[in-house]
């Protein structure tokens, strides 16, 4: 926990360095919080809103896409299934050295046709994030779907439900814990994602928290660690709130009850 105490201490000391001193909490004040909230050139609240927007849409869409794919892999048998499963995760292991460059080229090309999806748009950023959504998420959910007894599907089918109906109304409820975990992980990933967002989002009013905040400290000579820490603490609030809200799904044991 100590690193986080450092962050808190630095946020509360308006003129502080991050690690220059071990005298934690030697000065306490909320100047840094004010500074970052009231500074014109760093529209913190706007960044906050952008981040929420991007993270929410990404989380919902990627959880849904992952669940769809996991359902197919778990319940259906088709040619190339095993190959597909392995390929999806192996692709994600590719070193992303040129990732930012490639995605920049791609998005600028898309932007030439559809300005609304191109560079400097949240839609574009979300689409890029969704590109990475299938891999690990699918796997996580795939394992979980396998634990849901297939008798449930069969019973529903006998009742006359189609595959889509089974999936949306029955299965999804049963796997709520893993959906919650995946959604939470997805939110955390897109809140803290920096590299791609920094390349794609150009105007300050479009940027996300990660991009905006890093600018405060990117030049070591003028780094404002105190404001940065304050900003990072506030940025963690939605994640914390979401975790508290989802916790009961994550640990609630809903599956066990429903199977009976």
């Amino acid at each position: 926990m100590f690193p986080l105490l450092f962050v808190l201490s630095s946020a509360l000391n308006p003129n502080g360095t991050l690690t220059g001193s071990n005298a934690l909490f030697s000065k306490i004040g909320i100047d840094s919080f004010w500074r970052i909230l009231s500074d014109d050139k760093s529209p913190y609240l706007l960044w906050f809103w952008n981040t929420l927007k991007v993270a929410t849409v990404t989380a919902v869409a990627s959880t849904l896409m992952g669940a769809l794919a996991a359902y197919a892999f778990s319940r259906m048998r088709f040619a190339g299934r095993r190959f597909g499963l392995i390929t999806i995760v192996v692709i994600q292991m590719f070193p992303q050295l040129l990732g930012a460059v490639a995605i920049f080229l791609m998005m600028s090309a898309i932007g030439d046709v559809f300005p609304a999806f191109g560079l400097n748009t949240h839609t574009g950023l979300i689409m890029v994030y969704l590109g990475g959504a299938l891999g690990v998420n699918t796997y996580l959910m795939y394992g979980f779907f396998n634990t849901v007894p297939v008798e449930i599907d069969e019973a529903a089918k006998i009742d006359g439900a189609g595959h889509a109906r089974i999936f949306f109304t029955i299965i999804l409820r049963l796997v709520a814990p893993i959906l919650a975990v995946v959604a939470l992980l997805s939110v955390i990933t897109s809140v803290s994602e920096y590299l791609i967002a920094s390349v794609l989002l150009i105007d300050p009013e479009n940027q996300t928290l990660a991009v905006g905040l890093v600018k405060l400290v990117s030049n070591p000579r003028y780094a404002d660690w105190s404001a940065f820490s304050a900003g990072a603490i506030m940025a963690a609030i939605p994640v914390v709130a979401l975790f508290l809200a989802l916790q009961r799904y994550i640990v609630g044991g809903i599956t066990a009850g429903a199977v009976k």
Binding site: S198, P204, V211, S218
Partner: peptide, 14 residues
């Protein structure tokens, strides 16, 4: 456009 000081040069070249 305010750019991240650490990446401004490489971004420019690319």
């Amino acid at each position: 456009v305010a750019k991240d000081n650490a990446t401004i040069k490489d971004d420019f070249i690319q």
